[in-house]
């Protein structure tokens, strides 16, 4: 024991490698940190949007209703909800419900309250579209029309993360009851939208093709920045090229790597015959 105290204990493990002072490593780390920071900021903006949208419509006394909302509110809603995932949209609905409002963002009415107790409620009793619905589900909206409008928005939302969609301008959310436009107007609008979509699509395809081609040719960026210097050196050739031959024997063609397979086909068939008959 005494000897132990004299010699301090020494680990048998390898010494940890000190972090590389390579500026490239730091660069990569900073880049990733920036990406994460951007995502966080985007999430913060989405919460801001939820808070903002949970207070719409700003002017409740105006003649605007949920079916014909004020243009400014509708524009705000459409531009903000663009980044939402369906789960964010659910949060928005519950946030509005917590404030006592109908779940549909552009609806000025308060949400419905069912006076009866009980988990479920019968709706449309005695009619063809009769159904039993959880009370909670009914209380989220002011009526069936608003529920439909809100769900119309929800199905247009995308499940991919917001930061993947933030830069794409062609994503557009349509309201359930857009003011009816003339047929031509509608056609022109659709055409421009399709054209924009096509253009974006074509650009994307071209970029993808170019990338694939570069990969096939081997002239990628990574190839140019390769760390190991690859130098191709030709072998100097001496003597005249000779065509391959089968060798001296007749059954040279049966030889594989100097070994000739042997089997007695006669014997096999003979024994088969004797047993077979």
């Amino acid at each position: 024991m005494a000897t132990q105290s004299n010699n301090p204990l020494k680990g048998i493990l390898k010494k940890p490698i000190p972090p590389a002072a390579d500026p490239k490593v730091r660069e990569v780390a900073v880049q990733h940190a920036n990406i994460i920071q951007q995502r966080k900021e985007l999430e913060d903006t989405i919460t801001d949007y939820i808070i903002e949208l949970s207070k719409l419509p700003l002017d409740r006394s105006s003649p605007y209703t949920s079916s014909s909302p004020s243009p400014t509110d509708a524009a705000t809603f459409k531009s903000h909800v663009r980044l939402f995932q369906p789960s964010d949209y659910e949060d928005l609905i519950s946030e509005r419900n917590a404030n006592g409002l109908c779940g549909y963002t552009l609806c000025p009415k308060p949400r419905m309250r069912v006076a009866q107790r009980g988990e479920y409620k019968l709706i449309n009793y005695g009619r063809k579209d009769f159904s039993i619905v959880p009370k909670k589900e009914i209380e989220r909206w002011c009526g069936a029309a608003c529920a439909r409008r809100a769900m119309w928005i929800k199905v247009q939302l995308n499940d991919t993360s917001a930061w993947e969609r933030a830069g794409i301008d062609s994503i557009e959310i349509g309201l359930y009851e857009e003011p009816k436009k003339t047929e031509e107007d509608e056609a022109a609008r659709r055409l421009t939208r399709d054209m924009a979509g096509l253009q974006v699509e074509a650009e994307r395809k071209a970029a993808k093709d170019a990338q694939e081609l570069a990969l096939e040719r081997g002239d990628t960026d990574e190839g140019a920045k390769r760390k190991v210097d690859v130098r191709i050196q030709e072998n100097s050739v001496k003597g005249v090229a000779e065509e391959p031959s089968l060798g001296k024997d007749d059954d040279g063609h049966l030889v594989t790597e100097g070994y000739k397979t042997k089997f007695d086909s006669q014997k096999n068939t003979a024994s088969k015959n004797t047993t077979g008959i």
Binding site: I51, A98, N99
Partner: peptide, 10 residues
């Protein structure tokens, strides 16, 4: 407050 949403929590 009558509701506890993101705003109040913030």
């Amino acid at each position: 407050d009558s509701a506890l949403g993101a705003e109040q929590m913030r």
